[in-house]
Amino acid sequence: MKAAVIVFPGSNCDRDMAHALQDFTDVKTVDLIPHTAESVDRYDAIFLPGGFSYGDYLRSGAIARFAPVMESVVSEAKKGKTVVGICNGFQILLEAGLLPGAMKRNTNLKYICRTVNVKVENSGTRFTSDYEEGEVLRIPIAHGDGNYECDEQTYETLKMNHRIVFSYESDVNGSTGRIAGITNEAGNVLGMMPHPERAMETLLGSEDGRGLFTSVYHHWRDTHVVTT
């Protein structure tokens, strides 16, 4: 499997993401791809990292969504490739329209940086198959705009189709339905606010994030590698 980690001006979790993929899965290639790249079509999975792309000016993710590389990210996502957006990456996917809804300022208006309990609501996705359904993970969050908002109909659709993949165990930022992560309708695009790439080592607090990266890898292996 070949993975691309997109680097926007202001991304700051790109190295952590690459480290998580490189050192905790059997992914063959992990490349850091600049925002100016024309195409990511040679990659099997595309990761949009956290950070403050373009200084979060205007709205988080609003400008990054028009970065040259995004045209290719959107077309690969529409072809069914795996796309993961974490934190600012999630915000970019929302702005790009690959996922429904939008982010508002956290209810308490504060930038929240701490480890929270995140519940796996659906372990039947390509992002969560290595977790147990209902498992509670310790994963850090670090965001000011993580208050997920969508209209009632969208929320019902997300719920009904099990597209709410992660939720906060308790309300941390005001998100509708305590949503922490959702997928698109086809199930190949995931956006989540918590940072699994910062939860890879027990020594550093938690290794509960590993399952996300191994799930993605195992999904690719199971669909692409023929074993005899």
């Binding site: 709205r59 609003a62 400008i63 429904p100 939008a102």
Partner: peptide, 8 residues
């Protein structure tokens, strides 16, 4: 396209 987010 850019200045407002019509979702919210």
């Amino acid at each position: 396209q850019l200045l407002a987010n019509p979702v919210i």
